[in-house]
């Protein structure tokens, strides 16, 4: 055995350990698209709630007269549909990537681990948000969404792309910052779910190209 063989052996050990412990086939285009949809949705919500005012992205929860009005119900219903659509976009574009790379996702235990570890904190956050909305505490909704989304990403990144962890910490920081700012909820929301996803998606595309 010469030096080259030894280095190749070490390299193949590393690759196998990495491949078998991480779910790597997240599609960057899907994530970018989700970010763009979130930005568009934020712009629509801004138009819906701040007609005639010049305060773009100012406060959505300050004026509670709106809440549970017809408009708000439509907005919440729309947001729920949007989350489901976005989840589906990421899921199916990732399936497509896996198919291209000839990886059968159904068999990949790391995808199951990723999904499970992502879903638990996210569901907890969703239920908490629901409880707060029902009890008419609106102020912290956007920060709770960001914080729990960040925690969900941090929780699952050990089984998937390393970048997910970075995104998670950024979402968490943004959510915590949002707690201290009473207004501008929509702005934080657009930053966290829109802008960050666009940046992260583009990073993923670049990384996947390099292989």
């Amino acid at each position: 055995m010469d030096n080259k063989d030894a280095i190749q052996d070490l390299e193949s050990i590393r690759t196998m350990m990495e491949r078998s412990s991480r779910f790597q086939t997240i599609n960057g285009w899907g994530v970018t698209l989700v970010g763009l949809i979130a930005l568009a949705a934020a712009a629509v919500a801004n138009g819906l709630f701040y007609e005639g005012t010049d305060s773009w992205f100012s406060t959505i929860y300050g004026n509670t007269d709106y809440l549970w009005s017809h408009k708000t119900r439509i907005a919440i219903f729309g947001a729920v549909i949007l989350v489901i659509v976005c989840g589906a976009i990421v899921f199916f574009t990732s399936l497509w990537t896996a198919k291209k790379k000839n990886i059968s996702v159904a068999l990949d235990p790391n995808m199951r681990r990723t999904l499970f570890n992502f879903a638990v904190p996210l569901l907890a956050g969703a239920i908490l948000c629901l409880a707060l909305l029902v009890q008419e505490h609106y102020g912290l909704t956007s920060s709770i969404m960001l914080i729990f989304y960040g925690l969900a990403l941090i929780n699952c990144h050990h089984f998937s792309h390393r970048l997910l962890g970075t995104l998670g910490y950024l979402e968490l920081a943004l959510g915590l910052a949002d707690c201290f700012v009473e207004t501008h909820a929509l702005l934080f929301w657009a930053l966290g779910f829109g802008a960050l996803h666009v940046v992260f998606g583009i990073l993923l595309i670049v990384k996947n190209r390099r292989g």
Binding site: S12, I13, M17, S20
Partner: peptide, 11 residues
Amino acid sequence: RLGIMSVLMVN
């Protein structure tokens, strides 16, 4: 074989 062992070391 190296690959099999590598996989089983982390799973």
